[in-house]
Design a protein around this nucleic acid. Structure first.
Lengths: 210, 210
DNA sequence: CCTTGTGAAATAGTTCACAGCA
DNA sequence: TGCTGTGAACTATTTCACAAGG
């Protein structure tokens, strides 16, 4: 498995994986790159090229075994284990994240939640909320893989510094702010306003103003 | 203003805009591409090149006027007006979206919400929830710019087809599914699991398994 | 000086097109 | 025949490096 796989390729793999999981539930056992591409709006060549970075999973003349491809992607993406996450920030957004039903089936386990005012918030069907001051100690006692940050923008950098100091190497950042991390730490931003603003660029050009 | 501006450039502009707004609140009046880059973790050349697609906003030897640059980006991104949005899907996620305080200050107005079971859900401090069957009629009566989709995965394509048929040209898709839209419609996906899975790829390589 | 704006060079990513195999 | 896997060609994006302006 080569070491210099483009980042864009990695970003597409979970999308392929999710589609394949659905197709399998619906009974598909074999699929061509053409059909996969039709579902996802990408070219068949791109799918074949992306997969070819990791191995030769298809059969000429037939296509890919859905089961085989799911299993390969599971291994490639590291989904053959579960991942421990902590949530920092238990406001309205944080509570919605903590209650999200999609993490656990995908192997992402929320092991703890932290807030500056732990007494005033409670997560339904979720972990107890601990005081944020306890975070450094807890991280040392029980390492986690991923930090989810849902604090106000002006607290995000501090929280992330704390997570990184505690050995967390992946951050899912819901705070509307770009943060700085060492090169070995991964950050993904979830920011609806930024997403909307890149669409309004196009909307204001394509549609005549009313 | 040229027509073939790379999409990646457009995606960065809202991030520049948000940083500049903060710097302005903090009292910065002039800033160089170097300093901007330091804040955002990108190269100064990239920032200068990105901005140069739209005009010459800087002053040699000095940098950029924060106020001027904010105003230019507002115009470029179409943020000099407000945008009408509807939400479809008022489950737990939908309610969190509807209650999010970040949309209105950015000029994004939630004008209506729809659900298959409007009687069973209520949005605190938000619009009345209408039956989803009413969506096509409502869109005809009062056009909206943007649709936010927070329905279960298997309903997402139908809902988006309805929105598109009703003239909506931009979709913010929270449903964990890739959807198909005509070429003139813009979609941005908000999917934490996909974001996490691209990070676990890296985590499983960089860190020795425990 | 210092920093922009920008062609040119370098790098990254996508698509083509076809040999080869089931 | 039908479809994969893949170098090669092409396209997109980033970075370099420097002339020019304040």
């Amino acid at each position: 498995m080569p070491l210099d796989i483009p980042e864009v390729v990695i970003d597409r793999l979970p999308v392929y994986y999710r589609l394949l999981a659905r197709l399998q539930r619906e009974g598909t056992t074999v699929i061509s790159s053409q059909e996969l591409g039709d579902h996802l709006g990408v070219t068949p060549a791109q799918i074949r090229k992306d997969l070819s970075y990791f191995g030769r999973f298809g059969k000429q003349g037939r296509g890919y075994s859905v089961e085989r491809l799911i299993e390969e992607l599971r291994l490639i993406l590291g989904l053959d284990r579960s991942w421990r996450m902590v949530l920092v920030g238990v406001g309205q957004l944080g509570r919605a994240i903590a209650s999200y039903r999609g993490f656990a089936p995908a192997g992402f386990e929320l092991v703890a939640a932290y807030d500056a005012h732990p007494d005033t918030v409670r997560i339904e069907d979720g972990p107890v909320v601990r005081p944020i001051g306890q975070l450094p100690t807890d991280l040392r006692a029980e390492p986690v893989d991923i930090g989810i940050v849902a604090v106000p923008a002006n607290e995000a950098q501090d929280v992330i510094d704390t997570l990184v100091a505690g050995g967390v190497q992946a951050i899912l950042n819901y705070a509307p702010r770009t943060v700085q991390v060492p090169a070995n730490v991964h950050v993904r931003r979830i920011d609806p306003v930024v997403a909307l603003q890149s669409m309004t660029y196009h909307l204001s050009r394509e549609r005549p103003r009313r």
